[in-house]
Amino acid sequence: MNSFVAVFKRELKSYFTTPIAYVFLVVFLFFAGYLPFKNGFFEIRQADLYFFFINMPLLFVFLVPATSMRLWAEERRVGSIELLLTLPITVTQAVLGKFFSAWLFLIIALALTFPMVITVCFLGDPDISLIITGYLGTVLMAGGFLSIGCFFSIVSKNQVISFVLSVVTCAILVFAGMPTTLSYLSTFLPSGLVSAIGNFSFQLHFESLQKGLLEFKDISYFILMIIGWIVASTYVLDERKAC
């Protein structure tokens, strides 16, 4: 536990001692604020954050891999992994420490979008529980993308490669569930397979949380997704740490 906390603390600090955190926050907060207004946040005359959350998958497909690509790739390139893993820290503790610190960083970034919440509360009388499940869905999705990014950061020493691989994987998992993709697939695939593909994607589970549905299957989808990629990460890291 101590080693986990040590890695977690060091990682979180390192976001803010390097420019990464600030560049990320500025870009993220700009687009998170700009896109809803562009899509007609005011014109729709509804006091909810639908237009705010609906952009999140697309935004995170690019921004989450940008934070996760350095997690291990950098450590391996610089060689500091040899320091980290010769301290009394297990591979699992190190992977979890890094994952949770990056996740907390993304949660901080999301928390900084609070002006949007204040805006709708000021302008109308929004359904607070809908906003809460919206944020919950976004946090879980960020965790899912992050676990994918973490995995690819271990697979390649090169940050660009790990970025591209995780963007592609995340994008596939998002777009597989888009209505256009599903209706195209249903022209030649049996319906059971199409719904399996849909359920395998982030999009459907994310959307049902946006509707305020707090269902076990959606939450467990995200949790299982995270656990799966993290477990894969620890195995791959254990194999490849030295090469």
Binding site: R10, K13, S14, T17, G79, S80, E82, L83, T86
Partner: peptide, 13 residues
């Protein structure tokens, strides 16, 4: 106590 050959450290700290 292990000192690796190229002395990896966390440079930003």
């Amino acid at each position: 106590g292990y000192l690796a050959e190229n002395v990896p450290l966390y440079n930003e700290m």
